[in-house]
Design a protein around this nucleic acid. Structure first.
Lengths: 135, 135
DNA sequence: ATAACACCCTACTTGTTTGGTAGGGTTTTA
DNA sequence: TAAAACCCTACCAAACAAGTAGGGTGTTAT
């Protein structure tokens, strides 16, 4: 399950896509429009900025905006930043790999199954972008 | 990510598949062979039994065994019992559905994406069975 | 200059979940 | 009837999730 944090992140990003090319958007505005706790949202946006999804401008007329065109940022990237691994097992994760104790990976049925799941999932999440958030 | 509990469950189930038709297996044996904390494993097996994956026999010569042939129990069922929802959002879950506040489902891009992910995932997890755990 | 603006950063709090332990109770069979 | 083996409830500590607090820092308009 995606955390509430991730769901908030997507709600905020949706707002930013909807207002793309209208200049920076205030945290306060997103918080109000999308009903996200202000200070919590602040942390989330900061994290997305530190990971090159967003950029920000301080002072009057400032706010947050997407660093790239909505079609350039994949859903998978956002999830990895906010929630971490997408895979169901550490031993099949591409970005958060950890070998599993007590499973040799070459002869582990579960490993193979979860690798298939990972591939099927990423095929979707690495193709879809922020653009797809808004219909 | 699957919880450690779920991973233990699959390790134990693997052992039961490997020893299918050799009669009931002791908790203690699975605990030792698969290096799973005994009392924790006890709880897990009990839960699987209460959900019709396993059956048990008490007293001397007793133990746990699979209720049905390994090819009859799907990986998805086990995950749902032990960890709960498989989907990434409550609003796309088949067995644990909860509507999401602030998203009308008919016009939510994220909803659509996560529904696709769910379908792709279930296509695998509802086809693969315990039989596939052992190679 | 300087005040208002708006993001930046660290730390804290509270409640829930996870992973695991304890300690008897119950049923079965030799 | 005693030993074997599962059954059940409750408890515990550590980690994580969700959210709050309170200033700090850089920017812009006047």
């Amino acid at each position: 399950m995606l955390s509430k944090k991730a769901q908030y992140a997507f709600r905020a990003l949706t707002h930013l896509v909807e207002n793309y090319e209208k200049g920076p958007v205030l945290i306060a505005e997103m918080s109000k429009k999308k009903r996200i706790p202000l200070k919590f949202l602040e942390n989330i946006l900061l994290e997305l900025k530190n990971n090159d999804i967003l950029e920000s401008k301080k002072g009057r007329g400032g706010g947050y905006s997407l660093k790239e065109h909505p079609s350039k940022t994949h859903i998978a990237s956002v999830i990895r930043i906010v929630d971490g691994p997408i895979s169901m097992l550490p031993c099949v994760s591409l970005y958060f790999y950890k070998r599993c104790e007590n499973c040799n990976e070459k002869r582990c049925g579960l490993h193979d199954i979860m690798k298939d799941v990972r591939d099927a999932t990423l095929k979707i999440l690495e193709r879809r972008t922020l653009q797809d958030l808004v219909l």
